[in-house]
Design a protein around this nucleic acid. Structure first.
Lengths: 214, 214, 214, 214
DNA sequence: CATGAATGAGGATTCATTCAT
DNA sequence: GATGAATGAATCCTCATTCAT
């Protein structure tokens, strides 16, 4: 109705891009939290409300719920990949690598819960995420995040550094303990990821590796 | 028509009760499986189809989805309570009790997955189950299943048998590792609970307790 | 299962008929009460429970809910018809006939609530009863119960005995007042129709006819 | 695309509110009509179809059927309360008050049928409306709509203006006649509330009060 | 870019009715 | 004759998604 618009300068491309980036960041972060609470039953309306946006606005940035989740998982994959590669591709002994990896992983999960979502969902397969590229993500998860650890654990076992058990069992315990334990530590501090007390991380690692060592 | 003489009753009460018992048993079992797969998104239709029954039949026995879940959880609670009491109320040393408990728990979970559901949901708070008596179950869970273990772990720490860490951390690791690890072992064997290979259980327990011991 | 039946004499036809009659009477009476409470939303289960019968038993006597209602309404129609004819077909003056009719009607309704149902539903048309012969009953209602009163009221007006108003209005008030008022008096005494205090009936009639008289 | 300048808001709040107000008004009105026809068996689909809206739209404004009914009844209560207070709280003689009240009430019922619904349902208890605040409405109905009339009628009787009968009987007749009679006059004119012929109202009042006067 | 009104597919639930015993 | 287990059509209701503004 209003023909107003004396400020005919509509908005520069750059300004728009900035808004866009900021909105996507915001949405993704909130979505991660909501997903953590409600899983696949996360509602677009929940996100919109928490973000103080209209439901339509979410759809302005994401075609649908699945796309949003895919984006979330993809980014988590990248983040975790970086972390994994960095540590696993060193020349340390398997045991050292695993310990460093575990410690870093726990920190990462607590600081960026959406990365935790990735692990929780593909390890605990709590629920099937009907993402179109779900298989692709799963494959990448296997390739870049899971197999490297499996390999390292196998190395550890064969080299006699780790307990001599079926490697499959060891892997399941390794990831299971991490994911299962961390869960309780997430969701509590609503955004104060910075001031996290990390004593528990050290304790978890200590105990877990005492058990795993040969 | 009927040759049954003057038996006015078409089916005896006992016959009906038998049918009921059998149906409820069947429904509960199938529901547990479906829940394990789809969580709270379990559909009545899924259960009906798997049971080869009409949707209405499920409703003949349960007022609604929630009631069915409540029944599932209540029974799981009883089952787990039995297990917990039996072991925790002995005169063994804390460490021994915990180890026995863990071993029995794992077996129970694999054999009766819906007991696992109970733990998974109240420990990991995976998904909010909108049970009317949710609070009651949660309270019972705390009282009869959680606290006793917490106490035992505390005893273990104070008596110097277990590693000297914050007891809260130890508890979280203890349960987290069990729940996180077992997850992978459930859902696979679709009904062959009998021929379960239990080597992995021993391995898990061994490693976990090696880590936890002082 | 039981081949028992030493009493090979199954049951005489007469015995069966007696049972049949008794059951139908019982069902109809209870159905009337339930209908009075819940209208067309009356559930077969309600009737069965109140009658201490199985749901199936109701269907043994009535093909479906509608048939049961039809039977109820038909019988009510007969009952009311008798009442109406008896009084209207006398040689009394219109006013006298109407007063006698009203008084008898009120008594009848209180004593046999299912007759009241008929009037309530076709006068207040509270809800459409999907009876197959609904139209037929409606027609009979008009012919045998409604029109005679309309005629009598018209006579009364034309003869100067009744107030000089549009006869349609007078009819509506006549029936409306009876049905509307009686409603409160039904449903209370659950079966003690015998010991009804009838003072209120006299009062209602007195007031109503004082108003209607010229 | 938009010529609206930098108006970030697609529709102003005021525009949205206007839409909401209009829709709610529309839905409520149609619901009242449908309820009048089908009672508690009113279907959301009926309303939607009559309003040329999707079923979902009704749910956009009302959480469920009950809430919609509650809103209907609450508004009716307010409307009737206004009417009652206005007339009963004057200094007129009881008889005058009652007559004015009855006349106004009849007009109100015809013009706003959902006010009639309120009276019909709480006086005749035609059908149980499972409103959550059913008790509250019932209490308000008693307090603000019923008791004042009961009191006035009692005054009238004690002061010798009204016939000397049990006041309870008088009240039942008073309301019963109004509700019972008006029923026939509603539902017919589908929206032509404006050109209502009110002769019958005068006639009803005249006759009724002739009967009630001492 | 932003939004909330509108929608309908899909899953939950009710209840009349059938039918084997 | 008597019954309650079984069923599915019909309705309620939720929520992802579209779209006009």
């Amino acid at each position: 109705m209003s023909k107003a618009g004396d400020e005919m300068t509509p908005r520069t491309n750059e300004q728009n891009n900035a808004i866009r980036r900021q909105r996507i960041y915001q949405i993704k972060n909130i979505a991660a939290k909501v997903f953590l609470e409600k899983g696949i039953n996360m509602e677009i309306g929940d996100i919109a409300k928490k973000a103080n946006l209209g439901r339509g606005t979410i759809y302005h940035y994401y075609n649908n719920k699945i796309t949003l989740l895919e984006d979330l998982l993809s980014e988590a994959l990248e983040e975790a990949k970086k972390n994994t590669i960095e540590i696993i591709n060193t020349n340390e002994l398997p045991l050292v690598k695993l310990e460093q990896y575990a410690r870093r992983q726990l920190k990462l999960w607590v600081e960026q819960p959406f990365v935790f979502i990735l692990f929780k969902n593909y390890l605990l397969q709590s629920e099937f995420i009907p993402a179109k590229n779900n298989d692709e993500i799963l494959k990448d998860f296997q390739t870049y995040l899971y197999i490297p650890i499996v390999k390292t654990i196998e190395e550890g076992i064969h080299s006699g550094q780790l307990v001599s058990v079926d490697s499959d069992t060891a892997v399941k315990l390794f990831f299971g303990a991490l994911v299962g334990t961390v869960h309780s530590y997430i969701k509590q501090n609503d955004s104060l990821y910075l001031t996290v007390d990390t004593q528990w991380i050290d304790d978890i690692i200590t105990i877990l590796f005492k058990g795993l060592k040969a």
